[in-house]
């Protein structure tokens, strides 16, 4: 995950938006609270943002504004409330939302489930993205699913990243808060780090 930061002033100049706009978007929930990182600088406390995420988000909001969407519509799109969405396995396969391999892996981990609620879809989406990186094998995908099943509920209102770590042929998956830095011994390697909220946004776009 890119942890490079952008200062508020830089952001406004680069994106061509005003303070008023930025604060309005924050009030409307278009920008997540934990993207506002307060840091001490030599001029005092200043606010920073995760650069890549923030610039992408601003571009998306400005793009949607050009389509004459209201701020409330945009808020729905960027922080989707899909709690009541549910798709059957047949629908998922038919629409080709995810790779067959990912769906098969999910089914073997959750035998007997015919319809997936949003949580299940999200796990499947994360698994699919992990497998697509080519760094994670199908068997290892089960480890990711296991981590998601047991841990994702704890991150209900926070942004989580999925980490896949490998050391000398052993592998494991972790869930950590998006803003948290992770330190790891030199013998081990973080194979991929994936933001669950990005998956959730991509998922909402694909389902609609």
């Amino acid at each position: 995950m890119d942890t490079e930061l952008i200062s508020k002033k830089e952001l406004l100049q680069e994106a061509g938006i005003s303070y008023g706009q930025l604060y309005r978007w924050k009030r409307k929930g278009l920008i997540p609270e934990d993207w506002f990182v307060r840091k001490s600088t030599f001029t005092g406390q200043e606010t920073f943002f995760p650069r890549a995420k923030m610039l992408a988000r601003v571009e998306r909001i400005l793009g949607m504004k050009n389509e004459d969407l209201s701020l409330d519509d945009i808020a729905d799109a960027v922080s989707p409330s899909l709690a009541d969405v549910s798709l059957t396995l047949a629908e998922i396969r038919q629409r080709g939302l995810f790779s067959e391999a990912a769906v098969d892996a999910f089914v073997s981990a959750h035998p007997g489930e015919e319809a997936l609620p949003f949580g299940g879809l999200l796990s499947l989406c994360v698994l699919d993205s992990m497998l697509r990186t080519g760094e994670v094998s199908l068997e290892e995908g089960q480890i990711v699913l296991d981590a998601l099943d047991s841990g994702l509920a704890q991150f209900e209102n926070k942004e989580a990243d999925v980490l896949f770590v490998r050391k000398m042929g052993l592998s494991t998956a972790l869930l950590v808060p998006s803003s948290a830095p992770v330190a790891i011994e030199s013998g081990a390697r973080v194979v991929t780090r994936l933001g669950v909220s990005e998956c959730s946004e991509a998922l909402s776009a694909r389902i609609r």
């Binding site: 508020k8 002033k9 303070y19 005092g44």
Partner: peptide, 22 residues
């Protein structure tokens, strides 16, 4: 106040470290 940031800012009797605006 430590910082005021906005578009149109008009102040009286305000003590601030930084005021930023249009």
């Amino acid at each position: 106040v430590d910082t005021i940031e906005g578009d149109d800012i008009s102040l009286e009797y305000t003590k601030a470290r930084v005021v930023r605006g249009k």
